[in-house]
Amino acid sequence: MKQKLIWRWLAVITTVGCTQLAWAGMTALPAAQHAGPVTYVSGGVGSDESQAIKEAMHNYPLVLEFAGRTSYGNEYLAGVPVKIVDAHGKTVLETSAQGPFLLVSLPAGRYAVSASYGEKTEHRSVSLLPSGHVREFFLWQM
């Protein structure tokens, strides 16, 4: 009888512990945002949030990463204005990245991406296929 009670308590403790770990993992990813039909996640500040975003990258066709080069090495940037324009010249997303990562769900096609830091704007042309994803790294000299 005593052994059954111990096993039940271990099961309860394990269940509660696993639930808390799962909840912690779910809350580390910033909430998805929407701009018309475009869904995006922006962030990556802090190790938990950064790890959650890295784990979610494969779910998004376009991954943008922002950093600045200093004399000490590369440092992640936040607050980077981003604009994505489709092949017809229509702006499909205009936002400010809340961290060093911006994950964007867009349909397959060609897009022009621009990102700014300070007075400098970087431009990229990307082609998204129906499967897979494209990752672009923006690096500014600071």
Results as ranks from 00 to 15, higher is better:
residue 1 M to W: 05
residue 1 M to D: 06
residue 2 K to V: 07
residue 2 K to S: 11
residue 3 Q to E: 02
residue 6 I to N: 08
residue 7 W to K: 12
residue 9 W to K: 12
residue 10 L to G: 10
residue 11 A to E: 04
residue 13 I to W: 05
residue 14 T to Q: 06
residue 15 T to L: 07
residue 15 T to C: 14
residue 16 V to N: 00
residue 17 G to C: 10
residue 18 C to V: 15
residue 18 C to M: 15
residue 19 T to M: 15
residue 20 Q to P: 05
residue 21 L to S: 01
residue 22 A to R: 00
residue 23 W to V: 05
residue 25 G to I: 13
residue 26 M to C: 02
residue 27 T to M: 10
residue 27 T to S: 13
residue 31 A to R: 04
residue 32 A to L: 02
residue 33 Q to W: 08
residue 34 H to S: 14
residue 38 V to E: 06
residue 39 T to P: 03
residue 45 V to F: 00
residue 46 G to P: 13
residue 46 G to T: 07
residue 49 E to F: 09
residue 51 Q to L: 04
residue 52 A to C: 04
residue 53 I to V: 15
residue 57 M to K: 11
residue 58 H to F: 08
residue 58 H to T: 12
residue 61 P to L: 04
residue 62 L to Q: 13
residue 64 L to G: 10
residue 65 E to R: 01
residue 65 E to W: 02
residue 66 F to I: 03
residue 66 F to S: 09
residue 68 G to W: 04
residue 69 R to F: 03
residue 71 S to C: 06
residue 72 Y to K: 13
residue 75 E to P: 10
residue 76 Y to I: 08
residue 76 Y to V: 11
residue 81 P to A: 04
residue 81 P to H: 04
residue 82 V to Y: 11
residue 83 K to G: 09
residue 84 I to Y: 00
residue 85 V to Q: 14
residue 85 V to F: 02
residue 88 H to N: 09
residue 88 H to G: 14
residue 89 G to T: 05
residue 91 T to A: 00
residue 92 V to K: 10
residue 92 V to G: 00
residue 93 L to D: 07
residue 94 E to K: 10
residue 94 E to D: 06
residue 94 E to N: 01
residue 95 T to P: 08
residue 95 T to I: 04
residue 97 A to S: 15
residue 97 A to W: 06
residue 99 G to Q: 10
residue 99 G to P: 12
residue 101 F to V: 07
residue 102 L to D: 14
residue 102 L to E: 11
residue 103 L to Y: 06
residue 103 L to C: 00
residue 103 L to I: 05
residue 104 V to P: 01
residue 104 V to Y: 01
residue 104 V to S: 02
residue 105 S to E: 10
residue 109 G to I: 09
residue 109 G to A: 12
residue 109 G to R: 09
residue 111 Y to L: 08
residue 113 V to N: 03
residue 114 S to A: 08
residue 114 S to W: 04
residue 116 S to A: 15
residue 119 E to K: 11
residue 120 K to D: 05
residue 121 T to G: 04
residue 123 H to E: 15
residue 124 R to G: 09
residue 124 R to N: 07
residue 125 S to D: 15
residue 126 V to E: 14
residue 128 L to E: 13
residue 128 L to A: 13
residue 128 L to H: 11
residue 129 L to K: 15
residue 129 L to W: 09
residue 130 P to Y: 08
residue 130 P to G: 11
residue 136 E to Q: 11
residue 136 E to G: 12
residue 138 F to I: 03
residue 138 F to D: 00
residue 138 F to K: 00
residue 141 Q to H: 12
